[in-house]
């Protein structure tokens, strides 16, 4: 349980948010040209890092906007929060 600083609404409890998994997975521009292996890689394979992870969150019980977060999954400490489309901050 932790507090998340939504870039649009400010600090709110984590229970107001929905985690959206690993961030910066780019949707293939030409899905029809992908091999099955590449499609599996895009759809299913995840780094699932223990440590610093880049991930997406949605403030579903608030502004309903998506944003990115850098979080240490070994202790749930949030390192940074930034808007969709922004460059990830250096940490």
């Amino acid at each position: 349980m932790f507090v998340i600083n939504c870039p649009y609404c400010g600090e709110r409890e984590q229970s107001e948010f929905k985690a959206g998994g690993e961030a910066h997975i780019v949707r293939p521009k030409q899905p029809t040209e992908l091999s099955d292996d590449e499609w599996a890689e895009y759809l299913f394979m995840r780094k699932n890092i223990k440590g610093i992870q880049f991930e997406r969150w949605n403030h579903i019980h608030g502004c309903r906007k998506w944003f990115n977060m850098i979080r240490d999954t070994s202790n749930d400490e949030i390192k940074a929060v930034y808007k969709m489309g922004d460059e990830p901050p250096k940490i």
């Binding site: 349980m1 984590q14 229970s15 998994g21 999954t73 070994s74 749930d76």
Partner: peptide, 14 residues
């Protein structure tokens, strides 16, 4: 389960 990835062996109160 919580819906976020975590290795903390804790979990949310909600």
């Amino acid at each position: 389960t919580d819906d976020y990835i975590s290795y903390t062996q804790k979990g949310s109160h909600d």
